[in-house]
Amino acid sequence: MGVSGCGKSTVAAALASAIDARFCDADDLHPAENIAKMARGEALTDADRGPWLQSCGAALRAEPKVVLACSALRRAYRDQLRAVVPDLRFVHLAAPQAVLAARLVQRQGHFMPQSLLASQYAVLEVPTADEALELDAMAPLDQLLDAVLRHL
């Protein structure tokens, strides 16, 4: 979990491969209306995220072993996902906003513009230590993967 550009998809795909699980990117579960809204530079509301979070929950329930890359910015969103999968675990990839803004400027072909990053930080409710493992998103992928595997 984390804001756009923190490396959720990269870390989640590597984890899924390491534990022989299905990888699912929550970006692929957004309704077309959400994608269009974000592409226009408009931040999503809680109402916009409702159907998307339901799709994320369904994806988590679909198979016994699923790794989902999902922003899950608010505790209420994480609680909604935990209601579907009670033993769900979260890893928060954290990094300074300026660093991720620079990453997003370089990213090609994604609907989420760099201009919405500040709105994601404004919505982010940083999870407590008992809710999620927090890792430095700037660490090398192999170190991140090792930390997640130890955590699990």
Rank of each mutant, 00 (worst) to 15 (best):
E134H: 02
A83L: 09
Q108V: 13
D20G: 12
A118Y: 01
L60D: 08
D79I: 06
L116H: 04
D20S: 14
A72R: 00
A58M: 12
E63V: 02
H92G: 06
L124K: 08
W52D: 03
E134M: 14
I19N: 10
A129D: 14
E63I: 08
D46F: 10
M38W: 04
Q97G: 00
A62Q: 14
R82V: 10
V66Y: 05
W52G: 06
L73N: 02
R74T: 10
K37N: 06
P113M: 05
D25N: 13
D130L: 01
D87V: 11
N34P: 13
Q97P: 04
F90P: 07
P51H: 11
A58S: 15
S55R: 15
R107N: 05
Q120Y: 02
V126T: 14
A39C: 02
R107F: 12
R74W: 02
A26T: 01
L81S: 08
W52N: 05
A76G: 11
Q54K: 14
D20A: 14
D27R: 13
D130F: 03
A129F: 02
E131T: 03
D28F: 01
R49L: 00
R107H: 10
P64M: 09
R40I: 00
M112V: 03
A43K: 01
A129Y: 01
V126Y: 03
K65P: 00
D87S: 14
R40Y: 07
L53C: 08
S71D: 00
M112R: 01
V91S: 05
S71H: 03
L124C: 09
D130Q: 15
V84F: 08
K37I: 04
L93V: 07
A76E: 09
L124P: 08
A18I: 07
E33R: 11
C24Y: 03
D79Q: 14
R75E: 11
A18T: 01
A47D: 14
V91W: 05
T45K: 10
L73A: 03
A16D: 11
H30P: 06
P127L: 01
P64D: 15
C24M: 15
L88A: 15
G109T: 07
E33F: 04
L133M: 02
R107I: 11
L60T: 02
D28T: 14
D25Q: 09
A32C: 10
L73E: 00
A129N: 12
C24D: 00
R49K: 12
L44K: 04
H30Q: 08
T128V: 10
I19M: 11
F90S: 02
A32Y: 00
V84W: 04
E131K: 06
S119A: 15
A36S: 14
V67F: 07
P86S: 08
A58G: 12
L15G: 03
S17W: 08
L117W: 06
R40L: 10
C24P: 03
